[in-house]
Design a protein around this nucleic acid. Sequence first.
DNA 1: CAGGATCCAAGATGATACTG
DNA 2: CAGTATCATCTTGGATCCTG
Lengths: 116, 116
Amino acid sequence: MERPFDAFSPRCPSREVVDDVIGRWPALVLVALLDNPRRFADTARAVGGISDRMLSRTLTNLTNDGLISRAEQHGQHVTYQLTEAGRHLATALKGVVAAVYEVMPQVLAARQISAP
Amino acid sequence: MERPFDAFSPRCPSREVVDDVIGRWPALVLVALLDNPRRFADTARAVGGISDRMLSRTLTNLTNDGLISRAEQHGQHVTYQLTEAGRHLATALKGVVAAVYEVMPQVLAARQISAP
DNA sequence: CAGGATCCAAGATGATACTG
DNA sequence: CAGTATCATCTTGGATCCTG
């Protein structure tokens, strides 16, 4: 039996999910929620530079994919938190961010050379 | 002493690198090169659906960031391969793709519900 | 084969204002 | 507070043609 999914095939549904998850905002939002559940404004603060619009879109999108769940606490109080699936993905994404930090010296050095 | 980099700050250089690496094409290209060095057309075949233009752009970009290296073998024969830094990042990205495969069932189920 | 140049459509993103 | 609507803009991505 072979793998049912293949993100390298444009047709495969997993390609869509990769698109939903691999991106500046989705990735940062997921990793930010890894710490703890967060409210809208709280998340916006955690993910520097994101606009209300993009945050709203991203949260809706990830919610539709079942990666985060929206919980209305009471009144005008909403919190977003990772689902099990979301936590799994967020952990992997955190690994990418960590890897980025680790290679920053090489990247900055390489840019020095190609930049001028 | 604290962490020198923080991708959650729009100003931090690491945010730029995250942008360069976290994206449909960059991510898939890096993972595709994890198997072995590849030539242009070869890479295009490995990453289904990418156009020459985007592949060219992506390769140039990743090369400038020192994540892949371009090697002119001889004549019109060029191969791209991961640098150490690139391999490190690609490995982390492969983890994300793997995580996506694992959560696909939940994602598809969640979409069923929100889709209609 | 590798890959740059050009033109164009579509989607992403941001700022601002507004509502429940 | 949590979000949506609107408008202007920038970037992405594709198709095509062209060159070393």
